[in-house]
Design a protein around this nucleic acid. Structure first.
Lengths: 209, 209
DNA sequence: TAGATTGTTAATCGATTAACAATC
DNA sequence: TAGATTGTTAATCGATTAACAATC
């Protein structure tokens, strides 16, 4: 276990390792090694070992990694061994899909509250969650201690929603709105933008003459 | 216009620039500059200028960039000035949301075909697209010339679907399935994985004692 | 023991940023 | 002209990878 700064690139790979390991476990495997992991995740063995070694000596020289124990280690690093309540704002078609998707994941981190400003949505039940009005967001964050917020509103409202979240103490945001939200530097935003992803792929198509 | 290799990081930012510029245009603006763009997108002015200058001398010294003309340049670079048909495989809740989302974007690149192997889905109409059976995918890619494919199936089938796409000539894939798909090196995959994004954010939560 | 595989250091690679001459 | 802003080079920063001693 070295003492280096841990990059966000490494952090982002941890859940990927975790999922692979769980699949291997489900398939009845008990041990693996950096080579095998790298192959299945399209990484290099060196980078797998580096990532993991930043958090402790999880492997055994000449042997590899024990799947069960590596899973618990990573869960612990990611705080996935505690219940973490998450809120989502904006339950249009995409937001709704995310709420359902979330429950399939079968983890202690879960969306447990949803907000929308559309009166047609408020009061509606989505996967056992009753949608509340956006006006209740601030109060709910404080009382229910949400630390992670998901933004799934149209681009015009995204910054407002983010501001409201941050104002109430949220420092981790997952943004699905197709717009860059600006936040203080102690707040982290992950931006999922499949419009942009799709459009960027178009670059690689053969140019028409 | 220099002669450097263009990185995928740059390519991914082009649609982001494009969207910002379109919003500015819509707001009635006609010119901008690297500083302004950088501020709104949380980048540095240097990187904005660098990105753009890789494709041509789009700016005017002492003045900045003309919004209209920059928009056309970027659209051209990204091939967004031609119709590009895209197909999606897997129209569960998420796939469906993506199909609808796509049409809001109001571009020439569009999802025009959808496939699923669930008989309940086949024949169903989603935003004017009639879902076809997965078995028809290969033939359809060839006859309709799909160059970009979207994968939205459960993790177990994702690799199979990717293989089928690639076998029929698709080289650009947008993968929403929570699993790494392995592809030849001339095929590009963008992976959107919000389960992983969410779980990685959990790392930054205060550790419970 | 011989073979395998880790953890870690040093080298490499690539992307971002600072700085500034060119010039509108 | 003076001020502003580009395009581009060189410096910096950070992440990935190769290599290998340690050791199971």
């Amino acid at each position: 276990m070295s003492n280096q700064k841990i990059s966000d690139a490494t952090i982002k790979r941890l859940p990927i390792y975790l999922r692979l390991l769980e699949r291997e476990r489900f398939a009845g495997k008990h041990k693996t090694n950096s080579n095998e992991i790298a192959k299945k995740l399209d990484l290099t063995p060196a980078s797998v070992r580096k990532d993991l070694s930043l958090f402790g000596d999880f492997g055994h020289k000449g042997v590899g990694y024990n799947i069960d124990s590596l899973i618990s280690k990573i869960e612990e690093i990611l705080n996935l061994n505690h219940f973490i309540p998450v809120c989502i704002v904006g339950v249009g078609r995409l937001g709704e899909a995310i709420v359902y998707h979330n429950h399939f994941m079968n983890r202690k981190i879960n969306i447990v509250a949803a907000f929308d400003k559309n009166p047609d949505k408020v009061g509606k039940e989505i996967d056992q969650i009753v949608v509340q009005h956006l006006d209740e967001l601030g109060e709910a964050i404080k009382t229910r201690q949400f630390k992670i917020g998901i933004i799934c509103v149209p681009p015009n409202s995204a910054q407002n929603v983010a501001d409201k979240m941050i104002e109430n103490g949220i420092k981790n945001i997952l943004n699905f709105s197709p717009v860059t939200i600006l936040v203080p530097e102690d707040v982290r935003v992950r931006h999922t933008d499949f419009g942009a992803d799709l459009h960027s792929l178009a670059y690689y198509l053969p140019k028409e003459k």
